[in-house]
Design a protein around this nucleic acid. Structure first.
Lengths: 113, 113
DNA sequence: ATAACCTACAACCAAATGGTTGTGGAAGCT
DNA sequence: AGCTTCCACAACCATTTGGTTGTAGGTTAT
């Protein structure tokens, strides 16, 4: 059974904020496709190693990515669970909208002229 | 036929950034559940009218919400399409992960010892 | 042992964020 | 007309963000 972790506002903030940057989204894509070390990632972007390191740290803080020491490098691995939790949030919003549409439909059905 | 709007990085940035604030997420929820004027929304939060107005403007800039003049007020309406576009983004990430898992499975099948 | 590489972290800086107050215009009410 | 309500926008301020460089520690290779 899937544990439906109650997300605090702060956690949701971090997830969406982490996704609100194209470099970070690209890091997520790469690390979901397969493990990559921080420096491998850094070589892919036109910015300093430290900058990429910070992006990875932000993603890690949001739970979108985990780091795993392998020798002298840290392998970055995407976390599909975090993605699914974000999806669950958006699903909830769509349900709210759907519920509203249903209410309006019911109203029209009750007063059909 | 559904128009699969190609989202620019900037647009995706705006959508996730807009969702990375609990006040704004709450505004989205309310405006998906039903239209509300800016001042109605403002009364719900412990901050100035102008602050709420800015949040609505950010949501509008991200396409998560639309404003509709009704007399002297502007009715704020949630836009489920924008939500779905964000969902599509997250779906794409999950597909990437799934593809990786499939690749690994295939590898194991090919070299079964 | 020395050199090269990978990572972490601090200090710094410009720009963006999230809030405030104040001003002003347009719409509705008495 | 005059007052009130709703909204937009500018100016300002503190904090956060996203980048930089520099320093230092741990790991691998020569």
């Amino acid at each position: 059974m899937v544990v439906e972790a109650e997300l605090s506002d702060d956690e949701v903030d971090r997830i969406f904020r982490a996704l609100a940057d194209s470099t970070r989204r690209d890091i997520v894509r790469r690390s979901l496709a397969g493990e990559a070390s921080v420096s491998e990632l850094a070589r892919a972007y036109d910015m300093s190693f430290a900058a990429v390191q910070k992006h990875v740290a932000i993603l890690e803080g949001a739970g979108l990515v985990t780091k795993h020491p392998r020798g002298r490098e840290r392998k970055v691995r995407g976390n599909p669970q975090a993605i699914r939790r974000a999806q669950a949030m958006l699903d909830a919003y769509e349900q709210i909208w759907r519920a509203r549409v249903d209410r309006l439909d019911a109203l029209l059905a009750d007063a059909p002229e």
